[in-house]
């Protein structure tokens, strides 16, 4: 019998002894507007995390503490939410994030060729960031664009009907910009 991987546990472990990183004015205003939508401040957790991420690209431990303070939650509660969702990054990411859809329709239409080409081009594995901090490669579950498979999201833009060559072109363009 082969060994069994029991769980997909997250490897990140937060350190709450770190200092709080106070929310800046923009974050404070945007989060306050979201809290207003709900009867309980906790309901704004995901939006608050997204607001912070939009500003600094990811969500640091210090910012988790700040959000917790603002929403009257414990840092662990906020972190339990942050680590649950695919699109909240608890580690720094590159200036460009490339999310390649690895679900079934894109897989049939050539995902593996894309993944192979792009990991070779950048010399990093999926889930890693280039040493210069330019690009992070992420596999992502079904993007709901199966009629245009295979697809990827590059810098928040959905790119469709990719070939290894067209994806590499996008990667090189992203590298030039950063």
């Amino acid at each position: 019998m082969t060994p069994i991987i029991a769980t997909d546990a997250a490897t990140h472990c937060a350190d709450w002894r770190l200092k709080i990183e106070p929310l800046n004015e923009h974050e404070e205003t945007a989060i306050a507007a979201q809290i207003h939508h709900y009867p309980q401040p906790q309901a704004a957790t995901i939006e608050a995390l997204k607001i912070v991420q939009q500003q600094q690209g990811w969500v640091s431990d210090g910012k988790v503490k700040a959000i917790a303070q603002r929403l009257k939650m414990s840092p662990d509660e906020v972190d339990s939410v942050a680590t649950f969702y695919n699109k909240i990054y608890r580690q720094p990411v590159g200036r460009t994030v490339i999310s390649i859809c690895d679900s079934v329709s894109c897989w049939i239409m050539g995902y593996q060729g894309l993944a192979q080409a792009v990991t070779q081009e950048l010399n990093i594995a999926l889930g890693e960031t280039t040493p210069d901090g330019a690009i992070t490669l992420l596999p992502t579950p079904c993007l709901g664009a199966c009629d245009h498979a295979p697809v990827a999201i590059v810098d928040d833009q959905l790119t469709r009907q990719l070939t290894p060559a067209s994806l590499i072109l996008l990667v090189r363009r992203a590298q030039e910009q950063t």
Binding site: Y38, Q40, T45, I46, V81, F84, N86
Partner: peptide, 20 residues
């Protein structure tokens, strides 16, 4: 913020309340 299980209606409600 992206998770398949949010499509289950009670999980969706938890998510909307700012929970896992």
């Amino acid at each position: 913020a992206g998770r398949y299980i949010c499509g289950e209606e009670t999980a969706l409600i938890n998510s909307l309340e700012g929970r896992r």
